[in-house]
């Protein structure tokens, strides 16, 4: 009886050992790939205010006709998976599907100078969208990222009324395809979250800035506004920059040079 139990236990130990080995082999590359860089915390830890993430857009480097940042954002956040509902008008759909970042082209009324720039959620320190949200679904993380908790968003769209940058999108249609890292559902509001899933995995980058660099433009610099030695603060120190709707005093996390 005892021998039988022992041999059974041995068999179970062997099985568990093998299973653990297989699991470790399967998980290890993921762990290795997500090895924290730039002292980022594992994603189980709460976000702290040690960092404040932001962007600098150098409009002089933003190329006319280039949509690399928009395309990269679409792929990164599954925005390219949105499908136009059958029978919907093409132009109307352009104004109904979710857009997190858009290219804007401006002409100076006096001089005629043309400027290109990407426009996304400006990640304000004092975000109007967070102030007006009745349920607190629109919130600002400790690290300055403004985003939407899609479990408590009731789809009232008051944040969209309040946002001075037209940065938010309402999901007008049934969503059939989405990415795990960017959940999306009909009837909720969403906007750029500075690729929070990357940051939470320890990857200090955004898809848009990465794509802009890959194109060789370097018009988008992502980084920590609180790190004086970091690339963002270094770039901000060298270049005069301003905020869009600076008059509102929102202290945006996204700054622009050349406008």
């Amino acid at each position: 009886m005892n021998h039988e139990t022992e041999s059974m236990n041995q068999g179970r130990r062997d099985f568990l050992g093998a299973a653990a080995g297989v699991s470790a082999a399967a998980v290890a590359p993921g762990v290795f790939l997500h090895t924290p860089v730039a002292n980022a915390a594992p994603r189980t830890d709460p976000v702290t205010d040690v960092h404040r993430w932001g962007l600098l857009v150098d409009t002089s480097k933003c190329a006319d006709g280039c949509t690399a940042c928009v395309d990269a954002c679409d792929t990164e956040n599954g925005l390219n998976l949105q499908a136009k509902p059958h029978g919907q008008d093409e132009l109307k759909w352009e104004n109904q599907h979710a857009v997190w970042i858009r290219k804007v082209k401006l002409q100076d009324n006096l001089t005629g100078h043309v400027t290109n720039l990407p426009l996304m959620c400006q990640h304000c320190e004092h975000p109007p969208c967070v102030d007006v949200c009745p349920t607190g679904a629109s919130f600002k993380r400790a690290d300055g990222i403004v985003m939407v908790d899609r479990h408590t968003c009731i789809g009232c769209r008051y944040c969209m009324m309040a946002c001075p940058y037209k940065a938010r999108s309402f999901i007008h249609e049934q969503v059939d395809h989405k990415l795990t890292r960017a959940p999306r559902g009909k009837g909720c509001v969403e906007s750029c979250n500075l690729c929070a899933h990357r940051l939470d995995s320890g990857d200090v980058s955004t898809a848009c800035a990465e794509a802009c660099s890959a194109e060789g433009h370097q018009a988008l610099i992502f980084g920590d506004l609180k790190d004086p030695m970091g690339p963002l603060r270094q770039a901000l120190a060298k270049t005069p920059s301003r905020q869009i709707r600076q008059d509102l005093g929102l202290n945006t996390g996204v700054r622009y040079a050349g406008i």
Binding site: N95, R102, V104, K105, L106, N109, L110, I259
Partner: peptide, 27 residues
């Protein structure tokens, strides 16, 4: 709401996202 939000005083918005993605003109 139909009136475009003025983000860039002194500028004319020539393009705002994709063609139907209205920002610089009356929605």
């Amino acid at each position: 709401q139909a009136y475009p939000q003025e983000m860039f005083p002194g500028y004319t918005v020539i393009q705002f996202g994709a063609p139907g993605d209205i920002g610089g003109q009356v929605a």
